[in-house]
């Protein structure tokens, strides 16, 4: 938040002149018939793509020369907002004269860049980056139809944030390398989640396969496990030494259990551990308000056991002494 954020309603002021021009007069809007494709000597491809949550749907027409895989003509039809129409228009224009493989290298970032008036000023406000993604997806769809392959096979890596095209691997690496602790840090470092925000946590603009919150939690958990085990390779509870196990149990209790108990003026201590053939038994001793609390033998106990089982191993039993 700052001075520039205090006056609302600035959405349209952030559109570039090119966005406005293409919205008003989309030069590549239209359709292509079988007859026309035949006359041009190419194969007609019609690809549909819709991002349901966005209320956008685009249809892309290509005439592709079979000998060279070159796109001779491209047109589109779009149901969507102004930036969706402008993105579709620049995307269709970009296809013309390129081969299908060359087109596959175009991303939504190129589409957005194609709409800029000047190199350094974004063509659209951050939340509208999402519209350019649809333009990119329909390209992939058209290419997959032409090549007669699955769309997934054309995507090299798992993309978490489509707006900024940030991959799962990049996000995981950046969290580790920079020891990132919060989702805000992840957004700041990677730019993932800075646009339509769908990939930050469930419940956003549209459902996603991966969410930054979950990725961060997983990576942090892995990092913790590595540090408690003192050995990067040992993250499997069963393979830990007794001291490693004790440290791992303490780490989980410190993070997941103790803060909750402290809120109610209670606490606990790990007093012993015993290895059984099929499980590890952990003996705990309650103190403070937990001592004598009926829940300490039921719900609280279950919560402690569940936390340890979830974080470390199913084969854990907790016994209060």
């Amino acid at each position: 938040m700052a001075k520039k954020d205090l006056i609302g309603g600035s959405l349209w002021e952030q559109y570039s002149d090119k966005v406005t021009q293409r919205m008003v007069n989309p030069a590549f809007m239209g359709d292509i018939t079988e007859e026309e494709a035949e006359k041009l000597g190419g194969k007609l491809i019609i690809a549909d793509w819709g991002a349901e949550a966005c209320g956008d749907a685009v249809r892309l027409y290509w005439v592709v020369e079979p000998e060279t895989d070159k796109i001779l003509k491209a047109r589109f039809k779009t149901f969507g907002c102004g930036t969706a129409i402008a993105s579709s228009d620049v995307m269709a224009e970009m296809c013309i004269g390129k081969t299908v493989d060359q087109v596959l290298k175009i991303t939504n970032l190129d589409v957005e860049r194609g709409l800029r008036d000047s190199e350094d000023t974004p063509a659209i406000p951050p939340q509208k980056m999402h519209c350019s993604v649809m333009a990119y997806d329909v390209l992939k769809k058209a290419a997959s139809l032409y090549k007669d392959v699955d769309m997934e096979s054309l995507e090299g890596e798992e993309i978490v944030c489509q707006c900024a095209r940030v991959s799962l691997k990049t996000i995981r690496d950046v969290i580790r390398l920079n020891d990132l602790q919060t989702v805000e840090d992840v957004i700041h470092y990677t730019k993932a989640g800075a646009f339509c925000k769908s990939c930050i946590r469930p419940g956003g603009h549209e459902p996603r396969k991966y969410y930054l919150e979950n990725i961060l939690r997983e990576v942090r958990h892995e990092m913790e496990m590595e540090s408690v085990s003192g050995h990067a390779a040992v993250s499997d509870f069963a393979q830990m030494t007794l001291i490693q196990k004790h440290r791992a149990v303490e780490a989980v209790i410190d993070k997941e259990v103790r803060p909750i108990l402290l809120l109610d003026g209670g606490n606990l201590e790990v007093v012993d551990m015993k290895e059984h053939p099929d499980h590890t038994e952990i003996f705990i001793s309650y103190s403070g308000a937990c001592k004598g609390c009926p829940s300490s033998q039921t719900f609280t106990l279950q919560k402690i056991e569940n936390s340890l089982r979830e974080k470390l191993s199913e084969r854990i039993k907790v016994t209060p002494v």
């Binding site: 609302g8 959405l11 966005c54 209320g55 907002c81 969706a84 603009h205």
Partner: peptide
Amino acid sequence: NRSGVAASTGSACASESLE
């Protein structure tokens, strides 16, 4: 708006938060 008529929409695309 380009034709001088002011109206409003509840469309998610028109909100700052996309909600």
